[in-house]
Design a binder for these strands. Structure first.
Length: 307
DNA sequence: AAATCGGGGAG
DNA sequence: CTCCCAGATTT
């Protein structure tokens, strides 16, 4: 959950997830749909699918226990070198280095790294530096400390160097330039905009139609989806077009126009198969779906019938 | 090496 | 708005 996701964001998801799947065996025994239901809203759904697969592999090949070597950990889906080393140092007191976003920022500043951090050279030097600096006697404390340093003091835009325990030999601080000018970064690239139409189809009870997932990969893979089109016979029905909303991804900006259809009778229900009717008020029934569903529902409730 | 995967916190 | 977060995987 913490891969590319801030701790504060992940905490409520983590707590709920651990209540529903309190053990590796419980997670392995669950359906991927049940896992993704708990992941809904958190994003990067491949993490949820990979975690589920990893649990099953751990049960099958590792007697239900996490392996304790980097090579075995990296072989599990969703675990790369960074996560493997984090597990080894934080859980098993092995002197492995991590080089996550916080650590990269701390080390780039401390070493006054002239290289653009996205470059292969910088990547290599930062990993090398991280491994060199790792404590051989207290790897767990060291790993937690350098991450917390980046998260609390050596922050992106407003570092508090007066409180920093390594300010004395920090290269960026000594340089006279602004500490925030590190890490050096590549110029930003513009994010392309794409448009999409999504349909909100409500039945008489006020439940929303969600289609079964059609693919386990790609954007929102494995999640239930809003229809992008409707059967011809329904297009003549009264429908409402909501004002477009923006939904930003890492690589694209999606401008979504939602169209709303209210089914007043049962005539057209036979057109809706391979999916389910989701009642937004039923909080007990968690469905694997992207955050944009609730976003559009809120938009519809707030905006209402504007056209 | 570059692109692809969400969503939100913070400024 | 922009930047970036306890990155991994695919192309």
């Amino acid at each position: 959950m913490l891969q590319q996701t801030q701790v504060a964001t992940a905490i409520p998801y983590f707590e709920r997830f651990m209540r529903v799947f309190p053990s590796v065996s419980a997670l392995a025994a669950a359906s991927v749909d049940a896992v993704l239901a708990q992941w809904s809203g958190l994003g990067y759904y491949a993490r949820g699918r990979n975690l589920h697969k990893a649990a099953q592999i751990i049960m099958r090949d590792h007697a239900g226990e996490l392996p304790r070597t980097a090579a075995q950990l990296v072989a599990l889906p969703g675990i790369g070198l960074s996560t493997a080393n984090a597990i080894l140092s934080l859980s098993f007191q092995q002197p492995t280095a991590i080089c996550d976003g916080n650590v990269r920022r701390v080390l780039a500043r401390w070493s006054a790294l002239p290289l653009v951090v996205e470059s292969k050279q910088a990547e290599q030097q930062l990993w090398q530096l991280a491994q060199t600096l790792q404590s051989q006697t207290r790897p767990r404390d060291y790993t937690q400390a350098i991450m917390d340093l980046g998260a609390t003091l050596c922050t992106r835009s407003n570092p508090d160097c007066t409180q920093c325990p390594v300010a004395r030999d920090c290269g960026a601080l000594a340089s006279g330039e602004a500490v925030t000018s590190w890490p050096k970064r590549l110029p930003k690239k513009t994010r392309p905009t794409k448009t999409a139409t999504l349909w909100l189809v409500f039945n008489k009870a006020g439940a929303l139609w969600l289609a079964e997932p059609t693919s386990s990969t790609g954007i929102w893979g494995g999640l239930h989806q809003l229809p992008q089109s409707l059967p011809e016979t329904l297009l003549g029905q009264d429908n409402y077009t909501l004002s477009p909303i923006k939904h930003v991804f890492t690589h694209i900006t999606l401008v979504v126009t939602a169209k709303v259809v209210l089914l007043s009778d049962d005539r057209h229900f036979h057109l809706f198969t391979n999916g389910l009717w989701y009642n937004p008020k039923d909080k007990t029934r968690l469905i694997a779906m992207p955050a944009i569903v609730d976003k559009l529902l809120a938009h519809w409730l707030q905006q209402g019938r504007s056209s």
